[in-house]
Design a protein around this nucleic acid. Structure first.
Lengths: 131, 131
DNA sequence: TTCTATGCAAAAAGTTTGCAGTTAA
DNA sequence: TTAACTGCAAACTTTTTGCATAGAA
């Protein structure tokens, strides 16, 4: 494991990364906690969360399906994408021409049925760029 | 407002829908609560959440950037999409050829800087289809 | 020796739920 | 009249944080 200047080596953090690198299931913090309990009987969930945040910060791990923010709601039921500004948090709707064959391409590859999709773009919005 | 058989009319729910239909900002439950406080001084946040869930159930409103589930993590840092099974919750990685001009198209339209994006497909996975 | 990491427990943040009273149909 | 809706408060779930101790460098 490559260590940076800010963080020391830790058995727990190494194990968390190892678990994440060795699984396809996109686990929750709690799943990781359960896996580690045998090897680290006194492990606490707080340690798992703390280390996950460090690993995300170090770009060794990604957090997906961002929870922890507030639920947000909209009444725009049409098909559209979101551009989420990482600076001010504003969400802007827009439409792009999604090639409809894209969906069937996915369905064929994974042999699944797609019911809907969500395309989110993250970056800096016009307003924040000009400040 | 069109009512179904299960739900009666409610001033609060009507107002919530009206607010959502009249804004672009993809509000949180708490923002809605604040907007309504003047008109409904005794309003409770619980009522807002309850009605938002009813409106979502009625397909009059969408919940976006799904919070409330667990955070999920992955160590796959390459560019890929997720197929999320709505039945069993399994998340499957896959790659699709995203036309790179798509990003610059979005950047030009919104005059913004896109740093990353997230494409999620929701549906029924192969395993669940065959059950 | 120093300062990060840990376990524990308490707190925080966001959402849901039970209850008794209110209201739409 | 009946059953959904409401406000209130308590409970719940997920994540973060403060503190004293352990451990890496």
């Amino acid at each position: 494991m490559i260590t940076d200047n800010q963080h020391r080596k830790s058995k727990q953090r190494e194990k968390i990364l190892e678990l994440l690198q060795g699984t396809q299931i996109h686990p929750t913090a709690n799943w990781i906690y359960d896996q580690m309990k045998q090897e680290f009987p006194n492990l606490s969930l707080g340690t798992v969360y703390r280390n996950l945040n460090i690993l995300v910060e170090q770009n060794k791990v990604k957090k997906i399906i961002a929870g922890s923010t507030f639920d947000r709601f909209e009444a725009n039921l049409g098909e559209h994408c979101h551009m989420i500004c990482e600076k001010c948090g504003v969400i802007t709707d827009f439409e792009i021409g999604i090639d409809s064959s894209l969906i069937s391409q996915v369905e064929e590859n994974l042999e699944c049925k797609i019911r809907h999709h969500k395309f989110d773009f993250f970056g800096i919005c016009k307003k924040c760029r000009n400040q």
